[in-house]
Design a binder for these strands. Structure first.
Length: 414
RNA sequence: GCGAUCGUAGCUCAGUUGGUUAGAGCGCCGGUUUGUGGUACCGGAGGUCGGGGGUUCGAGACCCCUCGAUCGCCCCA
């Protein structure tokens, strides 16, 4: 490789090149999700990575941070404003409306892939990040919430992640939520001067957010703030009760989190996050980006996209964050290495290698470098068997790793 | 967008209050030894010390800017 006069371009900030054990952990998360979603009969969908900007600005809300300062938006060559998806839900809702997926309602769908948000990267937070996502669209019953949460719980358990708890709250229906919001503005507005600067701003933009502020100046008022329960309509309360009793019946452990709210405008009723328990290994591994799965009911979303009122619930989970918690996932063990001890045996070695792989044996070949050191290099990969090939062809095996597939291939050699 | 820490070989890191040709381990390549074997030893390649300015007789070390990483805030998965 000769030196060139220009510098190699760097990767984009906040993107990752995932390799080795981390890539295996990532794949493990996706594979587990795929397996579980089939058990629950969620159908696979593939969505575009970009949409018209208004899909997100209308669905998520113009005033949210996601829309106002975190989207990757650009004008395409035709002059349309497009945006790299910052989340899945808005695009899936758009697809539901534009493809006539109403005919499939209630529709259970699942997907996964990259999302983009212009944020400051830190632990568990990237500009291109990846989520697994599940949605139930066109189902108004609390049973849908229960099923969705049971699936989330099973995904996390099958990933082997422990000490994570479902934090559950209700935001009530539209009227409940508005009344609560007004009461919170009254409550916090009275002590505005004593709140943190951030919360003084939140008071106007998103007063619910003050409830989960970490600032001690805010925390002392949060305990006495009005609770959503006081504003719930009878229907909303009955809905939440049905969700919680359904979770109990499904064996999903949960805890009530009265100050849990959602940042995006479209949420109603059920809101939830799976969060590592304080002091647990998982909490330590994640740092401050502690939510590993979050979601809720978004009955108002379809209307914001110009569709008929359509109830829906969904969640998404960050694959990177989950992958940090699943532990080391080694790459698959190598079963056989074909060791070419003499270069004249290369053809025979390649024939053997093909037969091994066709026979389902995880195999590789060692044929380069100093002939005397090939064996050392092969041994370092810790294969179960080393198949020795010299100029006369295959002549013997070292190691104890013979298994049925390997034996069958050797027995059937041409 | 705000704050803090950091940026030396492919990787993990040394580098003393600024002072001759910038080092180690691992990895890589080659050799000797061994010879059904992950041994030991020897040698080699590989760095304009993230980039750009500045201070100085002299900067990897000090100052400024910039890019990036990490950890918080914010936000969120």
């Amino acid at each position: 490789m000769s030196k060139t006069s220009f510098k190699t371009p760097q990767a984009i900030r906040g993107t990752q090149d995932i390799f080795g054990p981390e890539a295996e952990a990532f794949a493990f998360v996706v594979e587990t999700f795929e397996r579980v979603r089939k058990l629950y009969r969620f159908r696979r969908v593939e969505m575009p990575v970009f949409e018209k900007t208004e899909v997100f600005s209308r669905a998520i809300g113009e005033t949210t941070d996601v829309v106002s300062k975190e989207m990757y938006s650009f004008e395409d060559r035709g002059g349309d404003s497009l945006t790299l998806r910052p989340e899945f839900t808005a695009g899936i809702a758009r697809a539901f409306l534009t493809n006539g997926w109403q005919q499939h309602a209630p529709l259970k769908v699942a997907t996964h892939g990259p999302l983009f948000r212009y944020e400051r990267p830190q632990k568990g937070r990237y500009r291109q990040f990846h989520q697994i996502d599940a949605e139930i669209i066109g189902a108004a019953e609390p049973q849908a919430d229960v099923e969705l949460l049971a699936m989330a719980d099973q995904v996390i358990r099958e990933l082997g992640i422990e000490d994570v708890t479902l934090h559950l709250n209700t935001l009530g229906d539209g009227d409940s939520r508005e009344a609560w919001r007004a009461a919170l503005i009254d409550c916090f507005g009275a002590v505005k001067g004593e709140l943190s600067e951030d919360s003084q701003e939140r008071l106007e933009k998103n007063p619910l957010r003050i409830l989960d502020s970490k600032d001690p100046r805010d925390r002392k008022f949060v305990g006495d703030a009005p609770k959503i329960d006081a504003f719930l309509s009878d229907d909303a309360r009955a809905f939440f009760d049905a969700v919680t009793s359904g979770l109990d019946a499904a064996g999903v452990k949960w805890t009530r989190a009265e100050s849990l709210v959602r940042g995006l405008d479209y949420y109603r009723h059920t809101a939830f996050e799976f969060i590592p328990d304080e002091g647990s290994a998982a909490a330590g591994a994640l740092g401050s980006q502690s939510t590993i799965l979050g979601g809720g009911r978004y009955d108002g979303l379809m209307e914001s996209l110009g569709g008929a009122p359509t109830p829906a619930v969904g969640w998404a989970a960050g694959i990177e964050r989950l992958a940090m918690l699943v532990g080391e996932k080694g790459e698959p063990a190598i079963e056989a290495i074909v060791l070419v001890e003499h270069d004249d045996g290369l053809v025979a070695a390649n024939a053997l290698l093909s037969e091994l792989r066709a026979g389902g044996v995880v195999a590789d070949i060692m044929a380069t470098g100093s002939p005397k050191k090939r064996y050392d290099k092969a041994v370092k990969q810790n294969p179960k068997a080393i198949l020795r090939v010299n100029e006369t062809g295959y002549y013997g095996m070292s190691g104890e790793g013979e298994n049925e597939r390997l034996a069958a291939v050797l027995a059937n050699r041409k």
